[in-house]
Amino acid sequence: MKITVAALQMPSEPGQVAANLERADALLTKAHQADTALAVLPELFNTGYGLHPDFALHAEGIEGPTLRHLSRRSREWRMGIAGGFVERDGRHLYDALALCLPSGSVHVYRKRNLVFWEPFRFRRGRSPLVVPTPWGRIGLAICADMIQRPVWDDYRGRIDLAVIAAAWPDFACRHSTRAHWLFGGLGPLSAEIPAKVAGDLDVPVIFANQCGVTRTTIPVLGLGLVQEIADRFTGRSSICDARRNPPVIAEGGPRLVLSDILISDPRGPHSWRSTSPSVPAVFSSAPG
């Protein structure tokens, strides 16, 4: 099966949910015009990624404005849409990635590997998530998840397509371009890891990253003692098809990355079974 997919690379203004959603909608419209079957937005595209004092102000559930809008677009345009948001479940907040399907179902994955300041603001997710779709089984991951080997071991042989939403910084001062002494080597990995996953798991990978400036906060001994970098997100969103070489990789700045991918033998929703008790749908609902 050949489908057109899109990685939407965009900057997000911290705390400006409405403006960010409008910006995302403009990119989604272009993706729809390109007959895209599946579009992926970056991590926390609606709230912006950075150390907010309180993400609870912008956290939402399945009925929140962001997911309501994405789900409506998905049904209206018959296009799968994945996007990162702050999920609220009772008292808890999660760095989450929603996958809205044209059928109206919404699946939510919670980031499992929180880094830097994230454990101070979010609760850690517990499970991988494999979503059966008309295009095959999709495995979800968020940013720092992709640097952890167990994440891909969980998905190996169980998915037909991997979706990664990220807000991956350069770890270099945007003024002096000097790389951070400890994390400076991590920035370039944003372009390398999706291609490695595609080859390793033999599945296409859609990687959507933020772009634009940011301030990377690195807690040293807790949030009271931090190091901050006047940083920027790497961009370099990509679509990697394991059967094709090389991958399509964007440069910095807002971009719509489009590519056709081949999915071999998609199992589809009817023949799909959860491959493990540890791979449940964290949340799934089909609004009427």
Partner: peptide
């Protein structure tokens, strides 16, 4: 396989 990277530089950084 159609593939493209569209420049949307009109968006505000």
């Amino acid at each position: 396989f159609g593939e493209s990277v569209s420049d949307l530089s009109g968006l505000v950084l």
